[in-house]
């Protein structure tokens, strides 16, 4: 009897809750240990990025308008799904070059980090809201509201933990995201898309591209419908370009070193706008 041919996964993009191929039709061979081919990875174009922004914009009213409690439930659900597929994610990290023991630990840390941010969704508004003393008959208070669409550049490593550390605070705060996966760990990001897809996360809230950062950077940073950029583990040169181009429509910028992966509510605050309300108190 002939040996069975394995069915290999095609790693595509994740845009608007769907898994399209790149419109450019391009792919890149991802090589593992000893130059062995692991998979062909989509090489997203600027038009894929543009389509992802359209999907993220369409998803924004629903996601930002969802109750904080529901957002937390959905993120927690994603953590549950990830837990159930932990072995697959560890194997995938291993195939992309992470040693087995470290890969298992990384998956566990990634799940814990997602749960951490799931817990913050209905707590950070209380933490960052204020009641402001004013010199008139008004009740004056400030509350955080999500910024809008955030372009997320995941750190080069670690593959899964880094990606989740980059996107979780953005979406926990009610923003929608277009995320660019690490060039070394694109498979983990696309497999995570399957987890998000299965977690009742509305299509378009997280969009994931695998591609060449240098090619996408000019478009990502100048797009007028992108309201913020979270870049992790990028060079000073990239930071300079981001700062310069972000000035076009005054995007919010959060520039993190690759090592800063801890759960932190201030990373949620990085993409929140403060709305202040003056409410008349009773007339005397």
């Amino acid at each position: 009897m002939n040996e069975r041919l394995p069915v290999l996964k095609t790693y595509k993009l994740f845009i608007g809750g769907k898994f399209p191929r790149t419109e450019s039709g391009r792919a890149r061979a991802l090589k593992g240990k000893a130059g062995r081919l692991i998979a062909n990875v989509s090489l997203a174009s600027r038009k894929d990025f543009r389509n992802a922004v359209v999907a993220a914009r369409a998803a924004f009213p629903g996601w930002s308008g969802a109750t904080a409690y529901l957002r937390g439930q959905i993120l927690y659900r994603a953590a549950e799904m990830l837990e159930g597929r932990a072995a697959q994610f560890a194997d995938e990290l291993n195939a992309q070059g992470t040693p087995p023991a470290r890969a298992r630990r990384e998956v566990a840390d990634a799940i814990d980090l997602l749960v951490h941010y799931a817990g913050w969704t209905d707590k950070f508004p209380a933490l960052f809201s204020t009641v402001n003393p004013v010199a008139s008959a008004h009740f004056n208070f400030s509350v955080p509201e999500p910024t809008g669409i955030v372009a997320v550049i995941a750190p080069p490593a670690p593959g899964l933990l880094g990606f989740i550390a980059a996107i979780a605070p953005v979406i926990a705060g009610g923003n929608t995201a277009v995320a660019l996966a690490s060039p070394d760990f694109p498979l983990s990001a696309i497999s995570l898309a399957e987890v998000l897809h299965d977690s009742d996360l509305p299509g378009g809230v997280v969009n994931i591209l695998t591609g060449d950062l240098a090619e996408l950077l000019p478009h990502l940073s100048t797009h007028m419908d992108v309201n913020g950029i979270a870049a992790h583990g990028q060079s000073d040169e990239t930071h300079r370009l981001l700062r310069e181009n972000a000035a076009l429509n005054i995007k919010r910028l959060a520039l993190h070193p690759a090592t800063n992966l801890s759960g932190d509510p201030y990373k949620i605050l990085a993409f929140q706008e403060t709305k202040t309300t003056w409410h008349p108190t009773h007339l005397r």
């Binding site: 543009r50 922004v53 914009r57 478009h219 100048t222 797009h223 007028m224 419908d225 076009l248 429509n249």
Partner: peptide, 9 residues
């Protein structure tokens, strides 16, 4: 302009 526009404008 060379960059993608936004309906906001």
């Amino acid at each position: 302009t060379g960059h993608y526009a936004s309906p906001d404008y």
